[in-house]
Nucleic acid binder design. Structure first.
Length: 253
DNA sequence: TGCCCGAGCGACACGGATAG
DNA sequence: CTATCCGTGTCGCTCGGGCA
């Protein structure tokens, strides 16, 4: 019987010091140049590779604290109980009540999802249906129910004769409340609030919120940028009715 | 004979570019 | 803004050699 050259104890000691490690740092600590050796040791300890950063980072399952989606983050490095990004997305979609849009999934997993979603669709592991110009990703088994529930909860509003879909603003009641709430805010507060909502909703939300509220997309984007930069200038609040006359009015002359 | 180790290669994620 | 393609870099598995 041959004794193992690289001990498990050494590896556990490493993880007790640093919760997340790179392959190179493990190699160096163990004193090996072989990836295979490191992976064999990691595997026997129940290790987890990050699905972000191309799997560059490693941790142990016993050290991770997963959320309801089976995701754990450490310093912007993301790990999943499912392992890969593809498997993670499949599990999230299968468990969802009403499917997910790509932008929603991206917000959940914090990495680009399109390649992985395409892979899932092409391989037939999940289905997708186009709604209002965006794909809704749904389960193979529960897809019909998920789609029906999503259609129920979305609000289709006529704005320039386009259908607008806002996740999270799914009913007329919520939209009414939103309009009422906005009406009591000054222009800067409106801009910052919609900027925050846009950040929460993810990619493409500036335009959708603009269509829902009637506030210019550039104003919402400005609010978002102000929040991101943490540079909120006091500025001047204009009185209602002030500012440049609308082009429409001018054309009527 | 059984286990450990390393080279090689396929799979996967990332990010830039581009079309609609 | 979203969807798609594609090149690049890295991971992680398989297979075969070497050692006790």
């Amino acid at each position: 019987m041959r004794l193992a050259k690289y001990s498990h104890r050494k590896l556990l000691g490493l993880f007790s010091r640093d919760v997340v490690l790179t392959l190179d740092s493990i190699k160096e600590a163990l004193g090996t140049t072989s990836k295979a050796t490191v992976f064999r040791k990691l595997k026997s300890l129940g290790h987890r590779a990050s699905y972000s950063h191309a799997g560059k980072y490693h941790t142990l399952d016993t050290l991770a604290s997963y959320n309801k989606y089976g995701i754990w983050s450490f310093n912007q490095i993301y790990f999943s109980q499912q392992g890969s990004l593809v498997d993670t997305l499949e599990a999230i979609i299968n468990k969802s009540q009403e499917g997910y849009f790509a932008s929603e999934l991206q917000t959940l997993v914090h990495v680009r999802v399109f390649n992985a979603l395409t892979q899932l669709v092409v391989s037939g592991r999940v289905l997708r249906e186009q709604i209002a110009g965006e794909y809704l990703y749904i389960s193979k088994v529960l897809g019909t129910d998920q789609l029906a529930r999503r259609k129920q909860s979305i609000m289709l509003c006529a704005c320039k004769e386009e259908k607008v879909l806002i996740p999270g603003f799914g009913s007329e009641v919520v939209t009414d409340c939103l309009q009422t709430f906005l009406s009591i805010l000054d222009e800067r507060q409106k801009r910052l609030y919609l900027g925050l909502e846009s950040m929460k909703l993810g990619h493409g939300s500036d335009l959708r919120l603009s269509q829902l509220t009637g506030i210019n997309v550039k104003t919402i984007a400005k609010g978002r940028r102000e929040l991101s930069s943490k540079n909120i200038t006091p500025g001047r609040i204009r009185k209602v009715g002030s500012g440049r006359s609308s082009i429409k009015k001018k054309l009527m002359w």
